[in-house]
Design a protein around this nucleic acid. Structure first.
Lengths: 149, 149
DNA sequence: GGCATAATATTGCATATGCAAGTAGATACT
DNA sequence: AGTATCTACTTGCATATGCAATATTATGCC
């Protein structure tokens, strides 16, 4: 029973996942808050920026950059295709799905939300501090398996 | 056009949310991986640990500790109630929903998964390093609005 | 007591996320 | 060419997440 208490208290007090998820929820809320006027979710902006900067890019390579499951991408990108922010490129190189690029509207949207993103980014910078920001970037860089492209 | 490139590259290279979400996905995957044999998701374990340690506790206070929306808690806890890991406590003090506590099975489950959680925790510790772990804990602590209980 | 306001929980809606299984196209090996 | 394997994507299923609106109860004020 003493041992039981020990392990459960460890889970409660030390668990790094619990902490990371809290951080994730708070930060997501801040960005979503600033982006709301544009009817754009933070996750969608992240995807749009990757497609706009790197595209044309295949789903699989987006997944490697953002550590996202292909099935998640199929569905999240479908919304963005429907909204006309991105489009498939007919290159005919590989029959297993076409690469994606940002449409003109997509590029416009990115530029329009720029200041809102900046505001959220500044709020978060202030919240996590200089060390926090540096470390978050370093950690994420370690996680990503960058494709050649 | 130069300016456009500037802001979109900032979003791609600096965005702290993108980094945090990647980190969140990688870490969640590691814990889920270790917990899979127990048919328990990492998010559920986080909730179960809070209820088992702090309970009886109301949904609203769980939400303050984990920065979770009440509606999210209603649904996530419903699964755990159905699974018999937690139960409502009839205290009659407040008609707006009953506090929750862990059942005997819930406590047993927590103890059973202890070693698996430890394994995931160690893997993540190694991944983020000592500084990473320290900072993640510090950041999360700043986010949480601890209720009196 | 009676009403206005606040607090707690739930439901409807939309998106986010990943696993397992399945489909279809590409590659390699013979 | 033919088959085995691999790769990219999709679908079914289950859970995770939050906002807006709603229901119900508490609380404060008169």
């Amino acid at each position: 029973m003493k041992q039981d208490k020990h392990i459960i208290d460890q889970m409660g007090c030390e668990c790094l996942l619990s902490r990371t998820r809290i951080l994730n929820r708070v930060l997501t809320g801040i960005y979503d808050d600033e982006l709301r006027p544009f009817r754009l979710k933070a996750t969608q902006l992240n995807l749009l920026v990757v497609v706009a900067r790197i595209g044309p890019i295949r789903r699989i390579d987006i997944g490697k950059r953002l550590h996202l499951d292909p099935s998640t991408l199929t569905r999240n990108l479908r919304v963005m295709l429907t909204n006309g922010w991105i489009e498939e490129v007919a290159d005919g190189e590989d029959g297993r799905g076409l690469p994606l690029q940002a449409t003109v509207q997509g590029h416009d949207l990115v530029n329009q939300v720029g200041p809102a993103w900046r505001k959220a980014q500044d709020r978060v910078q202030k919240l996590v501090g200089k060390d926090g920001a540096t470390l978050l970037r370093k950690l994420a860089a370690n996680m990503i398996e960058l494709p050649s492209g």
